[in-house]
Computed example of a mutant assay.
Amino acid sequence: MSLILNGSWENSYGSVMVLDVAENGFIFGEYVSHTGSSGTYLVIGHCQPNNPENDAGQPLVLSIYWRSVSGEEPDDGSHWVSTYCGQLDNNGQITVINSLITTTHYQAFSPGDYIDKLIFTKQPITRDVATRSMELIEQKKEVVANPINGVWVNTEQAIELTVFVQSQKYGVVNGWLFYEGEQISLLGFTDTFADKNILQSVSLSGYMLKTHHPISLAGRINQDASVLVLSRWLANSTTVAESYLQASSLNWELTKIHC
C-alpha cells in the first residue's frame, strides 16, 4: 500500500519536510527550515502504517535535531531538539504539536519548552532523502561514550528506559522503553555537542504495537547527568472535528541507575 504520508510537506512558515515512510510505519527524512536558523535537519519518526480514513486520521510522531547537516556554521540553537506529535487528517493536512526543547539562550529564546501548532500541506515536488538518512540509521550500532548512555527508571510509574548514542556526528540515539507492559524500540537524537554548561536535550520516537500508538519522548538531562526530565507524547487517531484529542502528554522524571 502506498502511504500518502510519503513526500514533501510545507508549513505556513515556508519550512519543508521530506518524509520517506516504510511499510511498517518507520519514518526518516529531512527538514529544510528558514525560521530562526536556516539549514537542513534530520528527521526520524513513526506512524500508524495505514492511510487516514473518513472517521480517523493517521497518527504520527517525529523527532528532529536542530543541528544542520548541510554545512551551516552551528549556532546556539543547534543544541535544541523537537518532537512533533499529531496526525495526517483525512482532509490531506498534517497537523502536529511541536514541542521545542531549548537548552541555551539564543535570539529571543531562553531555556525551556516551547509549544506550537503546525499545519503542513503536501507539495507536488519532492526529492530523495533515502541515501543520507539510511546511512546514519544503518550504521553499526556501536556505543559512543555520552552522559545519556545507560538505564533510566521511574519505579513508581514502572518505567525503564535504556538508551545509547550510536553517532557522535549526527547525534543518533538508539534504545528501548519498558512501558505499559511492552518493550518499545526507540530511535532519535540527542545533543552530542553539549558542554558542561548546557543541559543536554533529547528526542526519541517509537511505536506501541499493543495499542497502535506512535510515542515520542522529549526533554533534557540535568548537568550532573543523574536525572532525565521528559515529556511523553502519544499520537491519537481522531476525526478532524475532534483533533484537539490527537496529542496527549505526560511529564516523567527518570533517574539513572547504571551505565
Rank of each mutant, 00 (worst) to 15 (best):
L136V: 14
K140V: 11
G86D: 01
P74H: 10
A108E: 13
E135W: 11
L136E: 08
Q107P: 00
V144I: 15
G92V: 10
R132S: 07
S99E: 12
S99G: 02
Q123W: 00
T102Q: 04
K141M: 09
Q87P: 05
Q87V: 04
G112E: 02
C85N: 14
D128G: 05
I115D: 08
I148G: 01
T126A: 09
T102K: 11
T104D: 00
P147W: 00
L118C: 03
D128R: 04
P111A: 08
G92C: 12
Q93I: 12
N98R: 14
P124W: 00
H105T: 13
G86N: 03
I97M: 15
W80E: 00
S133A: 15
I148A: 04
T103D: 01
I101V: 15
N146H: 15
Q93F: 14
T126Y: 05
V129S: 03
S82P: 07
T102S: 14
T121L: 01
L88K: 01
T83K: 13
T103S: 12
I94H: 07
L136R: 13
D116E: 06
M134W: 07
E135N: 13
R127E: 09
N149Q: 02
T83S: 15
E138A: 13
T131W: 11
Q107G: 01
V144Y: 09
L118E: 10
F120L: 07
V81K: 02
F120P: 05
Q87A: 07
S78R: 07
Q139K: 14
I101F: 02
D113M: 05
C85K: 02
K141P: 05
I125C: 02
I101L: 11
I97K: 13
F109M: 10
Q123C: 01
Y84C: 10
S133F: 00
T103M: 01
E142K: 10
G77K: 01
V143T: 13
T102C: 06
K141Y: 04
T83L: 15
S78F: 06
D75C: 10
P147R: 04
L100Q: 07
T83C: 15
N90D: 15
T102P: 02
K117H: 06
V129Q: 03
I94V: 15
K117I: 06
T121M: 03
D75L: 06
Q139W: 06
W80F: 11
Y84T: 01
P74L: 09
T104W: 02
S133V: 12
I94A: 08
F109D: 09
T131A: 12
E135I: 06
Y114S: 01
P74F: 07
D128F: 08
T126P: 01
L100N: 13
